[in-house]
C-alpha cells in the first residue's frame, strides 16, 4: 500500500534508483572495495616492511617475479584506485559548491585514478616479465 504522502511514481518506486538515478551502486561499490582492501592492504604493508625496504632495485624486481606477488599487487592497485576514486568523489561533492570547480575536480579525480592505476599496473607487469639475465 502506497503511503499517502509519497509523491513518487510507481515506476520510480519499483526502480528504486532515487534522486541520483544510480541507486545504491556508488555506496555498495565503496563497501565491496573496502572489504577487498582489508586483506590486500594488510598483505601489502606486511610485504613492504619485510621484503621491499631495500635500496637495491633488483630485490624489488625479484619480489615481483613471483606470480602470486604480481597478481596480488595488480589486484591491490585496481581495487585501491577504484576505492580512492569513490571516496574522493564524495569529498568533492560534499565540500565544493561551485559547479565549474566541482565538475572539473570530479573529472580530474577520475582521470588521475585511472592514470595512476594504469601506470602502476603496467610497471608491476614490466617488473614481473623482466628478463633478469639481460636487464638491470
Amino acid at each position: 500500500m502506497m503511503a499517502t504522502n509519497d509523491l513518487r511514481s510507481r515506476l520510480s518506486r519499483v526502480k528504486g534508483l532515487g534522486a541520483a538515478h544510480h541507486g545504491v551502486q556508488h555506496w555498495w561499490l565503496q563497501r565491496v572495495t573496502a572489504v577487498a582492501l582489508l586483506p590486500l592492504s594488510a598483505w601489502f604493508v606486511t610485504s613492504f616492511i619485510t621484503a621491499m625496504l631495500s635500496s637495491n632495485v633488483v630485490k624489488v624486481a625479484i619480489w615481483f617475479a613471483s606470480p602470486l606477488n604480481a597478481i596480488l599487487m595488480v589486484m591491490l592497485l585496481a581495487v585501491m584506485f577504484a576505492h580512492a576514486r569513490l571516496g574522493v568523489q564524495v569529498v568533492i561533492e560534499d565540500y565544493v559548491k561551485s559547479p565549474a570547480a566541482k565538475y572539473s575536480l570530479l573529472l580530474a579525480n577520475t582521470f588521475i585514478c585511472f592514470a595512476f592505476a594504469g601506470l602502476s599496473i603496467l610497471a608491476v607487469l614490466k617488473l614481473h616479465f623482466l628478463d633478469m639475465s639481460t636487464s638491470i
Binding site: G87, V88, V91, A123, V124, K126, L127
Partner: peptide, 25 residues
C-alpha cells in the same frame, strides 16, 4: 582517506621508477 590518496601517488612513483628508471631507484 585524502592523505592515503596522496600516498598512492608515491606507490605509483615507486613502481614506475623501479620498472622504468631503475638507475634512479
Amino acid at each position: 582517506g585524502l592523505a592515503l590518496f596522496v600516498g598512492t601517488g608515491l606507490i605509483v612513483l615507486w613502481l614506475v621508477v623501479a620498472a622504468y628508471a631503475p638507475a634512479h631507484y
